[in-house]
Simulated scan of single mutants.
Amino acid sequence: MTRPDHQPPRADPAPSWSIEPCPPWCVREHREDDHPEDRYHQGEAAQLPVVAGHTDTIPMTATLQAVELTIRQGRHHGHALEWLAIEADDQHSLRLLLTLESARSLTTHLARHLGIDGQR
């Protein structure tokens, strides 16, 4: 859960529960009273306006609408697995959580489908 009062990290000492330094991309402020579920590293959010719809409607294009996607990197404290979260601004219509390996694979396949990898 992202805190509504999120601020970039300061030079404050690390909380006592912190067992590792922040990765260079982490912008999340870690506090002594963070709930264990909130103890994760988080990268700066990128906003991406897209047009998207639902695949359970016929025709699918009938549900197309403007959506703002937020993309950010994360990793739980004490874990090696990093991920990319891709979420719609309304937090209900789209949410993907991909490992970095899966995100790279998705990028490769998107490039192929768009004909920008030189193989189309």
Rank of each mutant, 00 (worst) to 15 (best):
E32V: 10
P24E: 15
A11D: 14
L48C: 09
P15V: 01
E37C: 14
G74R: 09
A14G: 05
Y40A: 01
S16C: 02
P21D: 13
A45H: 11
T63K: 01
V67H: 05
R39G: 07
M60P: 05
D34W: 03
S16P: 03
C26Y: 01
Y40L: 13
I19M: 09
A11T: 09
W25T: 07
C26E: 00
L48K: 07
Q47Y: 12
L69N: 05
Q47G: 09
E44W: 07
P49Y: 05
P21I: 04
R31K: 14
S18L: 15
R31Y: 09
D38W: 06
I19W: 07
R28N: 07
P15Y: 02
Q42T: 09
E20M: 02
R28V: 00
P49W: 05
Q42C: 13
E68M: 14
I19S: 15
W17K: 01
P49D: 07
L48V: 14
P13T: 03
R28A: 09
D34R: 00
T70S: 15
E32D: 14
T57G: 01
L48F: 03
R75A: 02
D56K: 13
A14V: 03
Q73I: 10
A11P: 00
T63V: 05
P24W: 04
A46Q: 13
P24F: 10
P36G: 09
H35K: 08
H76E: 06
E20L: 02
S16R: 10
P21K: 06
S16F: 05
P49V: 07
V67C: 01
A52F: 02
I19Q: 14
G74N: 10
P21A: 13
T61Y: 12
V50A: 06
E68Q: 14
P36D: 13
P36V: 15
H35L: 11
S18V: 09
H76L: 11
P21C: 12
P36F: 11
H77W: 06
V27I: 14
P36A: 13
V67W: 01
G43L: 08
L69A: 02
A46F: 10
E29T: 15
P23L: 08
W25P: 07
R75S: 00
P36L: 10
I58D: 13
G43R: 07
T55V: 11
T70G: 12
D12I: 00
P49R: 09
A46M: 13
R75G: 06
T70R: 14
D38I: 00
P36H: 10
R39A: 09
W17L: 02
H30N: 09
H76S: 12
T61L: 10
Y40G: 06
R72T: 05
P23H: 05
P13L: 04
T63Q: 01
E37P: 04
R72P: 00
H76I: 04
E44L: 12
R28I: 00
H35S: 12
L48R: 07
D33L: 01
R39L: 07
G53D: 08
W25A: 08
A46Y: 11
E32G: 12
R72N: 12
C26T: 01
D12G: 03
V67I: 10
H76T: 11
D34V: 00
Q42S: 14
Q47P: 00
P36N: 12
R39P: 01
H54I: 03
D38C: 11
E68K: 10
V50D: 06
R28K: 14
A11Q: 08
V50Y: 07
H54W: 15
